[in-house]
Design a protein around this nucleic acid. Structure first.
Lengths: 184, 184, 184, 184
DNA sequence: AATGAATGAGACTTCATTCAT
DNA sequence: CATGAATGAAGTCTCATTCAT
C-alpha cells in the first residue's frame, strides 16, 4: 500500500520535474509519508528512478516483440498491419504518460532506452526484410532508427484514443510509402 | 582568449556530463582558470548553458531555412535533393559534436529545440506540399515530426564524412519512398 | 529545544557582531548544532534576523501602549508618573540586552524601529497634550522624538536595577522640566 | 581630481547602501574609474570608510567646541542661545547629508561617534553647570545624552533651512524647559 | 512499519584585492 | 597615473541520507 503510493508519487514527480530537479522530499510529500519511509522501500533516489525506467523498458520490450510481422502477409495489407503496430506503441505510451515520460523522454535513461529499442526493432526488421516484407536495400538498423525516431516525435503529441488511430495510420503511410508523390 | 577557452571547456564538459552533473569547478578546471573567472564571463552556470543552447538553435535555424526545396524540381531529382538536405543537417550536427549534444540531445533544452525545429521544418514542408513536391494527404506537422525524429536517431550515429553521405542517401530514400516493396 | 537554543545563540551572536559580520556558522557553533539544522528552523539568515527584530518591536509596542498617561493626573504627580514610564522602558531594554541590541541599536532595523516608536509615542503624546498633561505649543512628533532620543542614549548605559531607577528619575526630570534653572 | 571624485563617490554610495552592502566596484563605477585606481588612493575599503567617519567627527568636534555657552549669559537669553547651538548642529548635519549619514547614522561607527559626542558635550555641560547656566542636580553626562539623543532624532528629519530654524527653537524650548505645563 | 530530528558533503556565487602592462 | 584581467578566501544554502525511538 505504502509501496504503491510511493511508486505512484515517484513516477509523477519524476515525470513532472525530471530526475535531478526532483527531491526525495518532494516524492515523500506527494506520497504522504516521511523521508525515512522512502528508504525503507527504496535503496536510494537513483535506484528508485532506475526501477521505474527498467519497468518501462520491460513493457516496451514486450510490445516490440509482439509487433513482428508475419512474412506471409499480403503486400496489400501491409500498411494496415504496420498501422496496427504503431497503434500498439502509441497506446502503450499513452497508457501511463508519466512512466513513459521517465522511460522514453527524460534523461538520464531515455537515450539508452531508445538505443535498446533500436536494437530490438532492428532484429524484427531484419527478419521482416528476410521474409520479403520490407525493402532490403537499406540496413535494418537504419530503418529501425527511422521507426524509433518517428515514434519518439509522434509519442510527444497528446492525443486521445481516436487521435492515436489516425496518427498511427499516418505513421504507417509515411513509414511504408514515404512522402514522395506517386508518379505514374 | 579566456572567454573562448571557457566556452570550449563548458561545451565539452556539459556535453560529457550533462547540465546537472556538471559543476562549475569542472568547467574552470578544464579551462585552466579559477572559479571567479567563470563569473566574469558568465552570469551563472545556467546562463552559460543557455547561451550554448541558443547558439546551437540559431545555427540549426539557418540550416533549416536553406533546406527549402524549389517546387520546380523534377520528381526524378527529388530524392537526390532531399539527400542533400539530410547531408547538410548531418554535417552540421557532426561539425561540433559537443555543441550538438547540448543543443539537440541533452535536457534541459533538447525537447524544446526539437519542438522548434518541428515548427521550422513544418513551415518548409507546408510550402513544399503546396508546390506539389510532397504528398499532401498527411499534415505537414506529421511529416516534419518524421523528419526530425529521423535526424534525431541518425544524428546519434558517429560516422565519418563518407558515412554521412551514405546515411543521408538512406534517409532520403526512406523519407521519400518508405520501406514498402515497390510492387510493380 | 533546538529551536530555542538556536534562537538564543542567534540573538547573542547577532548582538555581538552585527548582522553582516555574523556568519551562520557562528550561530550554529554557538548553538551546538550543524548548519543544515539552522535551515530547518530558519528560512534564511535574513529571516532569522528579521524575526528577532519583529519580536522586539512587538514587545516595545506593548510597553509603549501601556505608558499612556491618564489626563486626570495631578501635575504634582506627573514627574513621578513619567519616571515610571521611563523605568518601564529601561527595564524592558535591560531585560534581554542582546535582543535590545538587535532591535534598537543595530542596523539594519534600528532606524525603522525608532521611526515606528516615534509614531507610537507621538500618538500617546498627542492625547496627553489634548488632555492638558503636556504643553501643546510643540508638535507631538517633536516631543516624541525627544523622548525616543533620550531613551536611545540612556538605554545604552549598562546599569543595574537600582541605577535604572535613578536614571529614570533623571530622565523624567529632564523631560518634564528641562535643564534651565528655575528662576523665581 | 581623481581623489576628489573617489571621495565623493564613496561618500554617496556608502551613505546610500551602508558599509557592508557597498562594494568597491560600486564606488569605482560611481567615480568613473577602475578598481585598481581605488587602491592607489585608498588602503582598503575599510580605511576609506574610516577616513570619512574621521572627517565627520573632526568637524563635529569643532562645532561642539564652539557651542560652549558663556556663563555670563542672562537667563532670559538662554533659550535663544541654546537654539543657536542646535541650529549650528542641524545646519552642519544638513550641509553634507551623505557624510552625516556615514558619520552619525550608520554603523559601524555611528555609536562610537555619538559616544564621543556625548563626552565632548558633557565637558561643555559640566562647565556650564559650574557657571550656573544649567541646573546641577543632574549629572552632566545625562544631560549630554539627552542633547545627543535629541539631535540624533531631529537630525533625521529632512528639513529646509527655514524648517531647521523652527526645529532648533523647539529643541531649545524642550531642552531648557521640558514638556510640563508651567503651573503658575 | 514509521518518524522527528539531524547531518556530511558539497554546490554556486561573491568580493576585496593584486599583477603585469 | 591608470587598467584589463584574474584570484584566494569565504559565505549561504541544499539535499540525500541516517539514527534513536
Amino acid at each position: 500500500m505504502t509501496r504503491a503510493r510511493l511508486r505512484r508519487a515517484a513516477t509523477n514527480v519524476f515525470a513532472r520535474n525530471g530526475y535531478h530537479a526532483t527531491k526525495v522530499s518532494d516524492i515523500v510529500a506527494a506520497a504522504g509519508v516521511t523521508q525515512p519511509t522512502f528508504y525503507i522501500y527504496c535503496e536510494s533516489k537513483e535506484a528508485a528512478y532506475e526501477a521505474l525506467v527498467a519497468a518501462f523498458r520491460d513493457n516496451l520490450r514486450q510490445i516490440t516483440l509482439t509487433n513482428l510481422i508475419d512474412p506471409a502477409i499480403p503486400q496489400a495489407e501491409l500498411e494496415t498491419r504496420v498501422a496496427q503496430s504503431f497503434h500498439r506503441f502509441l497506446d502503450f505510451m499513452a497508457q501511463d504518460r508519466a512512466l513513459t515520460e521517465i522511460g522514453f523522454f527524460q534523461p538520464p535513461g531515455c537515450s539508452q532506452t531508445k538505443a535498446l529499442m533500436v536494437d530490438w526493432v532492428a532484429a524484427n526488421i531484419a527478419q521482416e526484410q528476410a521474409g520479403g516484407v520490407f525493402r532490403a536495400d537499406i540496413p535494418a538498423a537504419h530503418i529501425a532508427r527511422m521507426l524509433v525516431g518517428l515514434l519518439d516525435q509522434m509519442g510527444r503529441m497528446n492525443t486521445d484514443a481516436a487521435g492515436r488511430g489516425e496518427l498511427a495510420r499516418h505513421c504507417a503511410r509515411l513509414f511504408c510509402g514515404g512522402v514522395g508523390m506517386r508518379t505514374g
